[in-house]
């Protein structure tokens, strides 16, 4: 429960969204046919459902934002959305959703590439390359913001 919430929080940057998705994830999970549910280990399945729900949320949100921008005749400033957490959280939020998922599953959940692939809907062979890119992207942002690891310890 807690690790999944942490993941959703970092994926979405917003506690309210994370909690909604968390609840919906459990509803979907427990609403599944028991036979189907028991065929997979619990944790990867929960993360997979949650990731899909979060991606749905992002898709819906960007569609709504596009629709609103279409109605608004003036140029609006793209203001970065508030992110809960400190500088590192804000740096992390500049990555794409997929990059965030990849890094979290690999470095926090410590999943293998073949475990991550179904959760993200990509081929296992792509995970390696995508993960490397995501890692470089985050390291670049961290460096640019002066948030690198403590120098020469």
């Amino acid at each position: 429960m807690r690790p999944l919430r942490a993941y959703l929080l970092r994926l979405g940057g917003d506690a309210a969204v994370a909690d909604d998705v968390l609840q919906e994830t459990y509803i979907r999970y427990l609403g599944m046919e028991p036979a189907h549910r028991e065929r997979f280990p619990e944790r990867p399945l929960l993360f997979r459902i949650a990731t899909n729900l979060m991606y749905d949320h992002f898709r819906r949100k960007s569609r709504d934002e596009r629709a609103v921008r279409g109605l608004w005749p003036f140029r609006t400033d793209e203001r970065p959305r508030p992110v809960e957490g400190g500088d590192v959280a804000r740096a992390f939020a500049t990555l794409t959703e997929r990059e965030r998922s990849l890094l979290w599953l690999a470095y926090v959940e410590e999943w293998r590439h073949d475990e991550m692939a179904p959760c993200l809907g990509v081929r296992p062979a792509s995970v390696r390359v995508m993960l490397f890119r995501a890692k470089s992207a985050l390291a670049r942002v961290l460096r640019k913001r002066g948030l690198g690891p403590k120098e020469a310890s």
């Binding site: 807690r2 919430r5 942490a6 993941y7 929080l9 970092r10 957490g85 400190g86 590192v88 959280a89 740096a91 992390f92 890094l103 979290w104 470095y107 926090v108 890692k135 985050l138 390291a139 961290l142 460096r143 948030l147 690198g148 690891p149």
Partner: peptide, 14 residues
């Protein structure tokens, strides 16, 4: 750097 950042984020989120 990434492991460091993610450990921080994870602890923070919890």
């Amino acid at each position: 750097a990434v492991v460091d950042a993610l450990a921080h984020l994870s602890a923070d989120a919890n």
